[in-house]
């Protein structure tokens, strides 16, 4: 047996390298989730990414607080130390104030929408493919982890962030509104015109497209779009974005609009997962 394996090791390797991913791809067409082995691996990778993010954060702090101030030190040691200390203190205070403001705004969401059961999570990393828009978040406690499932809505105080793509041990992938795989049913807040928002997958921006709009539907730049609640994932009246451009062709029965999402994902640090709704029968 081992002799056969040794003799045919190259054909076996070539087959494994090409056929295995092809097979995975074909099998995942109906079921986009990862298999248990992948899930365990992603869990391990998640821990590494968290560690990496912390290390990078420390290096960034080190650079901001000490190395970048080295020139001033040459001019005046005493003043430099004083300035460094004050800046460090100030940076820390600004950080605390910003975090405080962020958390306060997050808290406002909880106050504004008391019917939503919200669980907090921290953003850990982003995908590295230009075609997709996925964020990885860390679920801090077992309690939160047990409640989080795929296809749950993810929001911030600014509006809709996306939906849970998959949950691993302690981590979850969030499919952003701007990912081409994402589709959200929305209403225009101005006149209740209904449409579907789907991501464009642009890496330069987070723009989306509003489709399924009839030519007679009245949509204009600046229209605010909110979730319709249909589709069962996103609760009603969550802010999704604003129409930034409307395209009407000379022919055809439909029109399209470009939408700028309400949430600036590049600055996102904390998010909420909507794990349920208090009113019975309305669980997302």
């Amino acid at each position: 047996m081992l002799e056969v394996l040794a003799r045919y090791r190259l054909p076996i390797l070539v087959t494994a390298m090409l056929v295995l991913p092809m097979l995975t791809l074909v099998l995942s067409r109906g079921n986009p989730g990862r298999n248990p082995v992948d899930r365990q691996l992603i869990n391990g990778l998640g821990s590494l990414e968290t560690g990496g993010a912390m290390a990078v954060g420390l290096l960034e702090d080190l650079w901001n607080d000490y190395i970048a101030l080295r020139d001033l030190k040459d001019e005046n040691e005493r003043l430099k130390q004083e300035v460094a200390l004050l800046r460090e203190e100030r940076a820390r205070l600004i950080g605390v104030l910003q975090e405080n403001a962020r958390l306060r705004r997050m808290l406002d969401l909880k106050t504004d929408r008391p019917e939503l059961e919200l669980r907090g999570a921290r953003v850990v990393s982003a995908d590295v493919s230009p075609f997709f828009r996925v964020l990885r978040i860390r679920l801090d406690t077992d309690h939160v982890e047990r409640q989080v499932r795929a296809r749950m809505a993810v929001v911030s105080h600014e509006g809709v962030v996306g939906q849970i793509l998959e949950v691993y041990d302690g981590y979850a992938d969030v499919l952003l509104v701007s990912d081409p795989r994402s589709q959200i049913d929305v209403y225009s807040q101005r006149n209740r015109t209904r449409g579907m928002i789907y991501g464009l997958g642009h890496k330069r921006d987070y723009e989306c497209k509003m489709g399924y709009l009839l030519r007679r539907d009245e949509v204009q730049e600046g229209d605010t779009l909110v979730t319709s609640g249909k589709g069962g994932i996103f609760p009603q009246e969550l802010l999704v974005g604003q129409v930034s451009n409307v395209t009407r062709k000379e022919f055809g029965i439909t029109q399209e609009a470009i939408v700028t999402p309400a949430v600036d994902v590049s600055r996102l640090e904390e998010v909420f997962i909507v794990t349920g709704k208090s009113a019975p029968g309305l669980r997302p």
Binding site: P21, M22, L23, T24, S28, D173
Partner: peptide, 21 residues
């Protein structure tokens, strides 16, 4: 290459197998 391609696939955010292939 196989192991690292699968690692890249797990980190890539793409449908399973796309990046590995």
């Amino acid at each position: 290459a196989t192991l690292l391609a699968w690692t890249a696939d797990l980190l890539g955010g793409a449908p399973p197998g796309v990046i590995a292939l």
